[in-house]
Amino acid sequence: MFDLFFEGGRGSGAENRGSAKETAAAGRNVTVRIQIPFDLAVSGGETIIKVPRKTLCKTCSGNGAAPGSDMVNCASCGGSGTIQFAQGGFLIKKTCPDCSGKGQKASKKCVDCGGTGEAGETKQIKVKIPPGVSDGTKIRIKNEGSISSFANQRGDLYVIFKVGSSGLYTRKGNDLYYKINITVAAAMLGSEENIKTPQGGVVIKIPAGIQSGSLLKIKEKGVKDIKTGKPGNFYVEINVDIPKVTAGTEKKIIEDFARKRNLKY
Rank of each mutant, 00 (worst) to 15 (best):
E193S: 06
S69R: 01
K205D: 11
G222K: 02
N152E: 13
N233W: 02
G117P: 10
F161A: 07
A151L: 11
F85A: 07
F234K: 06
S100C: 12
G145A: 04
S191H: 03
P52I: 02
E220F: 06
K264L: 14
I83Y: 04
L216A: 12
A66Q: 14
A151I: 00
N16F: 03
T95L: 07
S80C: 01
C77P: 06
G101T: 09
G101P: 07
E220L: 05
N181H: 12
A119N: 08
S148P: 05
E121I: 04
F257H: 11
A26T: 11
G248Q: 03
G248A: 07
V133G: 03
G209P: 09
T31C: 00
G222P: 05
N152F: 03
V245A: 09
V163N: 00
A186K: 12
K138H: 00
V111A: 13
C74N: 07
D156W: 02
Y178N: 13
I195G: 07
D3Y: 15
G200R: 04
F90C: 01
K260Q: 15
A151N: 13
R10N: 14
T246W: 00
D256A: 14
G117A: 13
I48S: 09
S148A: 08
N262V: 08
S212E: 10
V159M: 01
G81W: 10
K244V: 11
T249V: 13
V236N: 07
K230G: 00
S146N: 02
G173K: 08
C77T: 08
T183C: 09
K230A: 15
D135E: 05
L189V: 04
A25Q: 08
G200M: 06
G114M: 11
N63W: 08
V127K: 03
P67I: 12
T55Q: 13
